[in-house]
Write a protein that binds this DNA or RNA. Sequence first.
DNA 1: GACTAATATGAGCATATACGCATATACTTG
DNA 2: CAAGTATATGCGTATATGCTCATATTAGTC
Lengths: 115, 115
Amino acid sequence: MTRKNPRPMSDAALGLIARRFAVLAEPMRLRLVHALFAGERHVNALVGEVGGTQANVSRHLQTLMHAHILSRRKEGLQVFYAIADPSIYRLCELVCGSIEKELARQTDAFSGGGR
Amino acid sequence: MTRKNPRPMSDAALGLIARRFAVLAEPMRLRLVHALFAGERHVNALVGEVGGTQANVSRHLQTLMHAHILSRRKEGLQVFYAIADPSIYRLCELVCGSIEKELARQTDAFSGGGR
DNA sequence: GACTAATATGAGCATATACGCATATACTTG
DNA sequence: CAAGTATATGCGTATATGCTCATATTAGTC
């Protein structure tokens, strides 16, 4: 499967794409996103679910917000975060699927048909 | 769109996913992947296409290889790399689509219906 | 084997960023 | 306005990683 006209992409576009991936390249942030798959949560709830300090969780939530992956809603003292970009679901599915396939391939190559 | 039972993921799984994203979080590597969308290339060809030093390109190709995103084929003096994990196509499509949508939304909010 | 070309790698430097600690800000209640 | 709770942020440190330069390795040619 190869594409025809892959014209050079602009540095700006590449930067945006790279940044997007970078935001998702942290276990703690993935934990937060994963927790939010179950629905909206406020900060303390997330701290309880994923562990780590409140400060750290808050920072990562900011990062995800600025990347437009999460949305933020204030209600009294609490701040609720939720998944804002639905493409995240498929993104994670794709990556997980790809990893599972790779692991299966390795397991296979090891125990299965050795030549 | 929320999922029902998002059981906590293992640290190992999260690490693998994060690493996957991290590998794609570099403009230079994205450039290489993008160039390879057009088909197999050898190292020098890639250096010519994406710019940068041979050493740097080689290193990034290693990184993509170890992440099982590229495959490697030696032919005489030259080494050919190619996309090995087809899920990369959809991954890039998804991210690009998401970014485009977000940019459109911002443009809209700015010039369009300001309340 | 000597020489050349293509690719990979070791070392050092510069930069980014995650984390912890302390503290600031925002909101509620009395 | 004082006190308390929930969240955000400034700062310092540790670690990771990208880049460059020089050199090693591998393979082909004479």
